[in-house]
C-alpha cells in the first residue's frame, strides 16, 4: 500500500521544502521507492534544493493537462536510487491544480511508488489544501516561535476537517510534529519556546527536532538535501526523524 505524506506548516520559511527533500531521501535510502512532489505552483523550489533544477523539462501541471506523461515529467534523483522528483509548474495560473488532476496523478503514482511526499506551499489556499487532501500522514513543520506555532495549529484544524480521510470519516491522518530551527541554548536562556512548550500547545506526537544549523544553508547552496551531510547536526537529526517515523 502506497503511503502519502504531506509536509505542511501554514507559515512560510519554516523548512517545509528542506524537510520534504531530506525526508524523501531518507525514505529512499531505506529502500522504499519514493516520489517527492512540489505543490508550490508558480514558486518552484524543490528542484533547487534537490539539485535537479537544470533537468526540469515537464512539470506537475503539464501532466495534469495531458501535455506530457508522468514518466516524462518525473526526474530521477542523481544521489539516491529509487527516488524521483515531480517539479512544480512556474505558471501564474492559480487554477492550474485541480482536485481531479491531483487525484489522477496520485493514483497513477500509487501503482509504482511506496511513498509519495507532498511538499506543500505556505498558506491555506488551494495549493496547500490540495497537498494535504489525499494524505495518510502529515509532518507539521514548526519553528519555536509564536506565529509558526499558531499557524501550525490552524493547519491541524484543516487536517482534521478539509481532507479526504476527514470527509469520508475514515481513520484520521496521522500527525507528526517536526520542530525546526531549534536552539537549545536559547531555550535554556529562556528566550525561545521549548519542545515541551510547543508540545503542550499543539499536542501531537513528536517526530524530531532539527537544530538551527549552518549545514542547512550549505546544503541548499549545493543542491544536496541536508540529510546527506551525515556529519552535520541537522543531517543526523533528519536521519533520526526518518527512523522515528517507522517506530
Amino acid at each position: 500500500m502506497t503511503k502519502t505524506i504531506v509536509v505542511t506548516s501554514g507559515k512560510g520559511g519554516v523548512g517545509k521544502t528542506t524537510t520534504s527533500a531530506s525526508f524523501a531521501v531518507g525514505l529512499a535510502c531505506r529502500g522504499f521507492k519514493t516520489v517527492v512532489i512540489d505543490f508550490d505552483i508558480g514558486l518552484r523550489n524543490l528542484d533547487l534544493i534537490m539539485g535537479c533544477e537544470r533537468r526540469v523539462v515537464y512539470d506537475f501541471v503539464n501532466v495534469i493537462r495531458n501535455e506530457a506523461n508522468l514518466n516524462q515529467a518525473l526526474i530521477r534523483d542523481k544521489h539516491v536510487k529509487d527516488l524521483f522528483i515531480l517539479p512544480a509548474s512556474q505558471t501564474r495560473d492559480k487554477d492550474a491544480l485541480t482536485l481531479e488532476g491531483v487525484e489522477k496523478i496520485l493514483n497513477e503514482l500509487s501503482k509504482t511508488f511506496d511513498y509519495i511526499v507532498c511538499d506543500s506551499p505556505a498558506g491555506i489556499e488551494r495549493g496547500a489544501q490540495l497537498a494535504m487532501y489525499f494524505a495518510d500522514s502529515a509532518i507539521v513543520v514548526t519553528n519555536p516561535e509564536v506565529s509558526s506555532v499558531r499557524d501550525s495549529d490552524r493547519i491541524l484544524g484543516l487536517l482534521s476537517s478539509k481532507t479526504k480521510r476527514a470527509e469520508e470519516g475514515r481513520e484520521p491522518i496521522s500527525e507528526h510534529l517536526l520542530l525546526t530551527r531549534y536552539s537549545a541554548k536559547r531555550v535554556a536562556r529562556g528566550d525561545m519556546l521549548s519542545l515541551s512548550d510547543v508540545n503542550e500547545i499543539l499536542a501531537i506526537p513528536l517526530l524530531g527536532i532539527i537544530p538551527e544549523s549552518q549545514a542547512v544553508l550549505r546544503a541548499s547552496n549545493g543542491g544536496e538535501p541536508v540529510i546527506m551531510d551525515e556529519m552535520s547536526d541537522a543531517g543526523q537529526a533528519y536521519a533520526d526523524a526518518v527512523a522515528r517515523f517507522f517506530r
Partner: peptide
C-alpha cells in the same frame, strides 16, 4: 538579565489558540 520572553510567548499562544479552536 534579559526578561525571559519564552514564558510570555507560551502564555499568549495558549490564550489565542484556545480562542481560535473554539471558533474553528
Amino acid at each position: 538579565r534579559p526578561e525571559k520572553t519564552a514564558k510570555r510567548a507560551k502564555d499568549r499562544l495558549q490564550i489565542i489558540i484556545a480562542h481560535e479552536r473554539n471558533v474553528r
